[in-house]
Nucleic acid binder design. Structure first.
Lengths: 221, 221
DNA sequence: TGCAACATACCAACCGGTCGGTACGCGTCA
DNA sequence: TGACGCGTACCGACCGGTTGGTATGTTGCA
């Protein structure tokens, strides 16, 4: 008992509490939802006390806003560094994005579903601050697809009048819906199916056929 | 102040508590989410006490399961009696279904979004009973579209291999995603946009052009 | 008379949030 | 060189209220 407390291992080093709380919030909220995740539970999982929590966040709502922003900075590099950006053809980059979303949809549902999608469903009517932060995060993610969609529209004149922003938003709609259905069915199959349908839609719209191998959710389970 | 308590108006008549609680659950959960809706709040809004609640439901989880089933019996007649079933062409019936979903998407978001979609996002990992009930409700709703999709596939051979069940599920995916995006943006526009894209997809797939008037979310806001 | 449909009172655990205090790194000046 | 002041990071007890749930009545209709 005389051993000195090895504070650097048993507990996050001083200064990490804020990030640790944000990361715990992402994990727990994705699994349990926003309201079911209590401040006490967050503090317990990262090994700090409530004093630390309220030193960094004015309220639970403030944590929600910060977590939505953090989710953006957390996921943006994941997609930015993915290799589908290498394709020369903008439409191939979009197909690649959809394939990439399918490829990371493995393991437990709470590990690949969306923090902001889950959170905004609970808070859209009770906290405008959280709602706005989640909306902004989704908008920002969709916006990063707009360049490729704009180039695709220029390169392959679409059969109907569409805009890049419109298509980018629809892409996110399909993905978010895939999350909901997947959670309800307890398998990632609905998400993979939805990605395949979306790709088919784009191939019809831009009149550029799909390669054979890109058929998520058709045969494989 | 001497007026006798008019129990028949201020409080539901004896025997109605169960249905009243279910209906209150639908309304409150759609607005606030599952975990944020407490048993006390439910009892307060319908004017009964906890004794009544636990007389009808063994637990909050049991209420969730019952509410998911109730949601199905509550919404099924709404769609069954809609007039889009009158169309002779099965694809027109499906277009009509999508237009109908757009036409009821007015007013506050919590009035036209989906109870089971909201609930399952919160409970998929913490209550398998609720998750299964929500999944079954979505599946049952999708299944009611399968007949029309099967007829459409027979009538208009699709450009790629699809199944009626597959398309019906994808339809629900798009709608659920539209709800999420709409909540995040605070307007029904994303849902209307998504319905328009889905119709466009079906028109490509079945090679049956859309009529002009059916263009939700394009010009109108 | 019996039983379904409630009401009432109560419980321990937990909720978000407050508050006084403490440990510690860092710049400053004698 | 060191000690002083100060700001940041964090602790942990505590608050009033709420949570889901229970045990025990009371009411009213068949």
């Amino acid at each position: 008992m005389a051993a000195r407390p090895q504070s650097s291992t048993v507990r996050p080093v001083r200064g990490d509490a804020r990030v640790a709380l944000l990361e715990a919030a992402l994990a727990l909220v994705r699994k349990q939802g926003w309201a079911a995740t209590s401040i006490d539970q967050l503090c317990r999982t990262v090994g700090v006390t409530k004093g630390a929590f309220f030193h960094h966040f004015a309220s639970k709502e403030a944590l929600g806003v910060a977590a939505a922003h953090y989710w953006d900075t957390f996921t943006a590099p994941l997609f930015a560094s993915a290799k589908y950006h290498q394709h020369a053809d903008p439409l191939d980059r979009i197909y690649g994005y959809l394939d990439f979303r399918g490829s990371i949809a493995g393991g437990p549902l709470e590990d690949f579903t969306c923090f902001v999608g889950t959170t905004v469903q609970e808070t859209f009517a009770t906290s405008d601050a959280i709602r706005a932060a989640c909306g902004e995060t989704i908008r920002a993610h969709a916006e990063r697809l707009e360049g490729d969609f704009r180039a695709a529209i220029a390169l392959y004149p679409p059969r109907t009048r569409v805009t890049a922003a419109n298509l980018a938003r629809y892409t996110q709609t399909v993905i978010q819906g895939g999350f909901v259905l997947s959670k309800a069915q307890g398998t990632n199959a609905p998400l993979l199916e939805a990605l395949a349908h979306l790709k088919q839609y784009l191939s019809f719209l831009f009149e550029k056929p799909l390669k054979k191998e890109t058929s998520h959710g058709k045969r494989r389970r």
